[in-house]
C-alpha cells in the first residue's frame, strides 16, 4: 500500500461514524533494512502547520497551547492498531468523546452556538 497516497488526507470517523477530522499526518517507525511501519495517525492544526513548514508548525503549536492549555500543545494521535476499516473513510475503534480532538468544538457549542436560541 502506498501510505502517502492512500491514507494521508483521508476522512477519519470514529466507531459511531462521527466525522472527527482528516489524517493530517502519519507517524512511522523506521526499521533498518525494512520498509517503514506506520504506528499512528495525527490530527489537528499543529500537524497541518508543520506540513506547511517548520515555522508555521511552531507558531501553530504555540497558539494551540495558549488557547487550549498543555493538553493541546502536541498533535492528537490515534494508534494505527485501532484501525477497523479503510474505505471511503478510515474508521478507528475509538470514541471521539473520550479524546481531546473535539475540545474546541465542544467549547464553541457550550459558549457560543448553544447559547443562541434555536440551536437544537
Amino acid at each position: 500500500m502506498k501510505l502517502l497516497r492512500d491514507i494521508l488526507d483521508k476522512q477519519v470517523v470514529d466507531r459511531e461514524q462521527v466525522k472527527i477530522g482528516k489524517v493530517d499526518g502519519l507517524v512511522a517507525e523506521l526499521r533498518p533494512g525494512e520498509p517503514p511501519k506506520i504506528v499512528a495517525v495525527e490530527l489537528g492544526s499543529i500537524t497541518l502547520g508543520r506540513r506547511l513548514g517548520e515555522r508555521p508548525g511552531r507558531w501553530m503549536a504555540r497558539v494551540a497551547a495558549r488557547l487550549g492549555g498543555k493538553r493541546h500543545a502536541e498533535p492528537h494521535r490515534i494508534a494505527w492498531n485501532k484501525v477497523r476499516d479503510i474505505g471511503v473513510d478510515i474508521e478507528f475503534d475509538i470514541d471521539v468523546r473520550e479524546t481531546a480532538i473535539f475540545d474546541w468544538q465542544d467549547w464553541l457549542r457550550d459558549h457560543v452556538i448553544g447559547r443562541i436560541p434555536g440551536a437544537g
Binding site: 476522512q11 477519519v12 462521527v18 466525522k19 472527527i20 477530522g21 482528516k22 490530527l43 468544538q105 465542544d106 464553541l108 457549542r109 457560543v112 452556538i113 448553544g114 443562541i116 434555536g118 440551536a119 437544537g120
Partner: peptide, 15 residues
Amino acid sequence: FGWTWGENLKPRDDP
C-alpha cells in the same frame, strides 16, 4: 478539515 457537516443537523451537533 474533516468536521461533521450537514444542513440537516442541528447547529448544536455541528458547531
